[in-house]
Amino acid sequence: MKNRLKVLRAERDWSQADLAVKLEVSRQSVNAIETGKFDPSLPLAFKLARLFGTTIEEIFTDEA
């Protein structure tokens, strides 16, 4: 699954560690989501959407 996490994070000048603290997950989790190695659960996807003030569809794109 593709995502715009890196772009959204860069727009706010947040590091992966900053985002990890805000999401209450590890920095490795943020890195794995950003690089597409790990798809977040629905609660975490909603948390991301709320944090960036957008919708899940705006962050994640289904490749299928």
């Binding site: 209450e24 997950v25 590890s26 490795q28 989501i33 790990f38 977040p40």
Partner: peptide, 9 residues
Amino acid sequence: EKDEFQKGI
């Protein structure tokens, strides 16, 4: 642990 990724690891 609440972090699913870390649990997966």
